[in-house]
Simulated assay, not measured.
Amino acid sequence: MHDRKALWVVRELGLPTIVTTCTSCRSTHHHPTGKFRVNASGKLLDVWLLIGCDRCGRTSKIPLHERVHVQSLNHERLLRYEHNDPTLVRDLTMDTALAGRTGYRLDWTGTWALDTDLPFHDLDDPTSLQVYVRFELPAPIRLGKLLTAGFGLSRSAASHLVTTNRLHLPTTLDTRVREDLTFLVTP
C-alpha cells in the first residue's frame, strides 16, 4: 500500500484588524484604507500607511519612513508608495515586525479558513498520511487548532495522537505557526 498525501491550505478571507486606539472615538479597530501618504520636505521624505477607524472613519497614519533622504529609498518602492500599490498595502498590513515597532497589534480573527483536499481521512487506515499545510497569509494559528479543524478531532484526541506517536509534528500543539509545514500521521 502507498502512503497517502493531503494538502491543507490556510486560505485568506481578509486582512487582520489593526488594533490601536482612535484619537477621536477611542475605538480600537482599524482597517487599511489602501493608501499611502508620501510627504516631501526638501530632500527628506515621510511615508505613512493610512488606516481608518472602523467606528468613526477617522484616518490615522502608521509611520513607515520618517525624515529619510530621497536617495535612501529604492526608486521602485517609492513609486509603489506613490501609486498606492495594493500588494504593498497588503504586505505591510500583515507585517508583525512593523506592528511591534510602531506600537499596535494585529487581530487575525476571521481572516482565514482551512481548506482540505479530503473528506476526513480515516485515521485508523493502515497507511501513513502525510499532510502538507500551505499558508496564503501569515496568520499565527495554534497547530492544535489546525488539527482540530482539519481532522474534526477534539483537542484531547489530537493530544492523544501525539503522545502515542501516531502524529509526528514539527513543533508542539500549542505553538503558533504561520508558515508552510508538513506533518505525518502513522498507523
Rank of each mutant, 00 (worst) to 15 (best):
G42K: 08
G100I: 04
F36I: 06
T96L: 12
Y104S: 02
N84G: 09
E66W: 06
G100H: 06
P63Y: 06
S72W: 14
C56H: 08
H75G: 11
A99C: 12
V38P: 04
K61Q: 15
V70A: 14
L88W: 01
H75E: 15
L73A: 05
N39T: 10
T96K: 09
L92H: 07
H30L: 09
R55K: 12
Y81L: 03
V68G: 01
I62L: 04
I62F: 02
G42I: 09
L64Y: 01
T102S: 14
S41R: 15
T59E: 14
R67D: 08
V89R: 00
G52W: 03
W48H: 15
T93E: 03
I51P: 00
S60H: 12
I62H: 00
N74L: 04
G103W: 03
M94T: 12
V89S: 03
L49N: 03
N39D: 09
D46Y: 07
D95N: 15
M94D: 08
D95E: 11
T87R: 14
R101C: 09
G52F: 03
L78W: 01
D85F: 07
A99G: 08
Q71W: 15
R90F: 07
L92N: 08
N39E: 13
R67Q: 11
L44P: 00
C56D: 11
G103N: 10
D85A: 06
G57A: 05
S60N: 12
R67H: 10
R90E: 10
H30Y: 08
T87P: 00
D54S: 13
R37Y: 04
V68R: 07
K43W: 02
L50A: 02
D46L: 05
N39W: 05
R90K: 14
L45M: 10
K35A: 14
L44K: 13
G52C: 04
T59A: 11
E66R: 14
D95S: 14
I62D: 00
N74A: 09
H31A: 12
P63C: 06
R77N: 06
H83W: 11
C56Q: 07
L78R: 01
L44T: 05
L98N: 01
H75R: 15
V89C: 06
G42H: 06
L44R: 09
I62W: 01
L78C: 03
W48E: 05
D91Y: 02
V47N: 01
